[in-house]
């Protein structure tokens, strides 16, 4: 496929690494094209002058909602249901593969 995309397949591979997701060669090609299309489409946001505009992340106007930082023990029932969802466990703890 001709690489006239805004985003190259190499960049897609880098993004997939950041997102910790394995993609097939076909998917890598597809996403190079799709991400490029979306970026081309959203370029029009550049037309909007936002020099003196403060970004908003949500619209309720609420800021800094605090609570006490205390740990609450979950019930045995809750723990048991959660443990059932663990892909791998031992003595009620999640077991993960060795890192090093």
């Amino acid at each position: 496929m001709a690489e006239n995309n805004k985003v190259s397949q190499e960049e897609v591979k880098h993004i997939a690494e950041l997102a910790r997701i394995e993609l097939s060669g076909e998917e890598t090609q597809k996403f190079a094209r799709e991400i490029s299309d979306i970026l081309g489409y959203v370029e029009q946001l550049g037309e909007v002058n936002t020099d003196s505009v403060e970004p908003i992340s949500q619209v309720t106007g609420k800021v800094n909602v605090f609570r006490e930082d205390v740990a609450v023990d979950a019930s045995e029932e809750t723990k048991n249901i959660m443990a059932k969802n663990y892909p791998d466990s031992q003595d009620g703890y999640i077991k993960v593969k060795q890192i090093m």
Partner: peptide, 26 residues
């Protein structure tokens, strides 16, 4: 996941996500 990770990744955050949040304010 791919589009979002791209838009939030280092070097692109200001151009995409932050810009979008500003237009959202408008």
């Amino acid at each position: 996941i791919m589009i979002g990770t791209y838009a939030l990744s280092s070097g692109y955050y200001d151009a995409y996500y932050l810009k979008a949040q500003k237009v959202r304010a408008l």
